[in-house]
Design a binder for these strands. Structure first.
Lengths: 118, 118
DNA sequence: CCGTTATATCTTCGCAGCCGATATATTGAC
DNA sequence: GTCAATATATCGGCTGCGAAGATATAACGG
């Protein structure tokens, strides 16, 4: 697994924190939690899931057959949850560093956005 | 330019918000602002700079010769600053989404073998 | 009935970005 | 005289992402 996580992978893991989901459920949930900004393509999704399974960050929890269609549910492993927590913390630091500098930039130029930081 | 920005590119832009820097200065500044977590390799740095120049996110401000060695100073353009601000905002949202879910996970005490139901 | 939309999984291929390795050159320290 | 630090640059491999398309079922509308 490449770390830092790229956005699609990051959002897949985030979506799985709450509950196990199947592939199509992930597509809709990732779209939802990113406010429609990210719509996963099959190539991205199943490629990512293969890698995540391989790295032990997610596991197949169960398989269901609904209306002759297969549903394979993926669950976040403890390892996956820990890694997501670490990645989130790293991103938080990067966001903080950039925000601090951008705020200074705003002060001496074009006033924009919320001047208040987190 | 591929957006979302990858970590090295993101940190390069962040480092350039405060002041123009030359290549080697970027390596040290990025290491500093990431608390030593990221040490840029030449291949990463100059590849990224080529792409950033090409996309108009940075420009060459000036060139100096110090001790017979060239120093090429890169400056963030307004476009680059705007893009960095947008990228930072997007990352902030992703961090927020993940943090919210991870916090809930922690509160439940990391569900083991059935989270208390059934 | 038939076409479209939604549900659902999966593969193939190309591209972009990152990193390790390597090259080159100067200066100062040991 | 050799090593570390300063400084820029190229190349090849690897990985992850995304576009495109294949496949299949069910629901809904025309």
């Amino acid at each position: 697994m490449e770390t830092p996580l790229r956005e699609p992978t990051f959002l897949i893991l985030t979506a799985l924190v709450a509950e196990p989901l199947h592939g199509y459920g992930l597509i809709t949930e990732v779209a939802r939690l990113s406010d429609g900004r990210v719509s996963l393509r099959p190539g991205t999704l199943y490629g990512a899931l293969d890698r995540l399974l391989d790295a032990g960050l997610v596991t197949v929890e169960r398989e269901e057959v609904v209306d002759s269609r297969l549903r394979r549910y993926y669950r976040l492993t403890e390892h996956g949850g820990d890694l997501l927590a670490n990645e989130t913390e790293r991103m938080r630091r990067n966001v903080e560093a950039a925000t601090a500098r951008l705020t200074a930039r705003t002060r001496r130029g074009t006033p924009r956005l919320n001047g208040g930081i987190a």
